[in-house]
Simulated assay, not measured.
Amino acid sequence: MRVALLLGAALVASAASSQPVSGLPASRPPTEAPSPPTTEPLQTSAAGAYLASAGATAGSLALGFALYHVLPASDPESDAPSPRAVGVAVMAGGALLGPSVGNLVLGAGTDVQRATRIKMAGLAAGAVIALGSTVVIAGCFGGSACAPTVETIVYVGAGVAAVGVVAGTVYDLATIPRNAALAQAHREGRRTVSLRPGGVGLALSVGL
């Protein structure tokens, strides 16, 4: 009889502990903190990140433009590449990578990689389409009738490449506000801690 009473009391206590405490919120799953920046952020302001992107892009374009006009032109009698190609390369690099500088200073290396992949994919697809013009030329044996078709293919390839670069740039700029908020949270050291004493959920925001 005593054993039965002890077992009954244990069952009642177990059922009571599984019920939510009156007046307290029900248990909730732990809240996951946002992913921290991949590197230590140098900037936590979205405005500062936009300025960094604009400055890197404009600076690279200006430097490349200056190099193109300062360096000598290629020698018509030489097969060596023109020194002015350095200026063109600097301008192209600035247009491609400059917009990613904002996320770079925010420590968002993952988004920098994603934006770069989008741009490179567009450039690769455009190059493949443009190279298709060589197939047309080979099929026409270099005839003048091929010229309109070749030009169209080249323009389509250039358009595809431009779309890829623009899409990657839009991704760069669109993700800056979110990454600025993450960088600010990382800088302040805020973390969401989930405590569940006795089956009761309690979320605390702790500043470390």
Rank of each mutant, 00 (worst) to 15 (best):
P34I: 02
P41T: 02
E32F: 10
P30N: 13
S27P: 01
F65I: 03
P29T: 13
S53I: 07
E32S: 15
A33T: 05
T39K: 11
P37N: 06
L42P: 00
G64H: 05
G64K: 04
A54H: 07
Y68S: 06
A66T: 07
A73P: 03
A54W: 05
G48D: 05
S45N: 13
L61A: 05
P36E: 14
A52T: 06
A33P: 03
L71A: 09
A66W: 10
T39R: 12
Q43Y: 09
S27H: 09
T44S: 04
Q43K: 07
A47I: 08
R28T: 11
L67V: 08
T39D: 08
L51Q: 12
Q43P: 04
L63G: 10
P36H: 12
L63E: 08
E40C: 04
T39N: 06
E40Y: 11
L61V: 10
T57R: 08
P29M: 15
A47M: 09
Y68T: 10
A62F: 12
A54G: 14
R28L: 11
A49L: 07
P37R: 03
L67Y: 06
R28S: 04
L67D: 00
L51D: 02
A46N: 01
A56P: 00
E40H: 13
E40A: 11
G59P: 05
A73K: 08
G64C: 00
A52L: 08
A73L: 09
A62M: 09
T44I: 04
E32N: 14
R28Q: 11
T57E: 03
T44A: 00
A58Y: 15
G48L: 08
H69V: 14
T44M: 01
L51R: 12
